[in-house]
Design a protein around this nucleic acid. Structure first.
Length: 145
DNA sequence: GCCAACGTTGGC
DNA sequence: GCCAACGTTGGC
């Protein structure tokens, strides 16, 4: 099965990409939306993650990877899921929302069409465009194969 | 700080 | 099962 790619949002003043790099690994918990939860559950180890800063920054700032697949969200006993993620590499140039909106090839992104969902899938063609705009090469560890 | 979008809750 | 009220997200 080939890898998938996802975009996850975080408000940088709560947990930024720099925080993830500092920690080396993080539990992606606290998701309380069924569709987002289903996306977490569909993630497989090694899937690529685009890390998006919402509210402040409003840009894709880095790449990460799924390190541990969905398990019980440790912040609740209710039926919610969490995954663990590790950082791969920051984007050489963050790709901001205005740029994404202005790029025809990205007009169909779930980020735009489902703007309030915190975990959305990204197609590989979209990933390629984001990486190009971000002047960043896909790290070896994240190769699609 | 405002507000549009939209998911969730709860009364009926 | 409908739908109004409410809460949250996130762009501006």
């Amino acid at each position: 099965m080939s890898k998938r790619a996802w975009l996850v949002k975080s408000e940088p003043y709560k947990y930024s990409y720099a925080d993830l790099v500092r920690d080396g690994r993080a539990t992606w918990d606290g998701v309380r939306n069924y569709e987002a939860r289903n996306n977490l559950r569909a993630m497989r180890a090694g899937d690529l993650l685009l890390y998006y800063h919402s509210n402040e920054g409003k840009a894709v700032v880095g790449l990460a990877q799924v390190a541990r697949e969905a398990h019980q969200d440790p912040t609740t006993t209710d039926d919610w899921s969490a995954v663990e993620i590790t950082p791969l590499a920051p984007l050489a140039a963050p790709v901001n929302l205005a740029t994404i909106k202005a790029t025809p090839a990205l007009a169909g992104m779930s980020l735009l069409r489902r703007s309030r969902l915190s975990v959305v899938e990204v197609s590989w063609p979209e990933v390629d465009v984001i990486l190009k705009l971000g002047r960043t090469r896909l790290p070896k560890a994240a190769r699609r194969r």
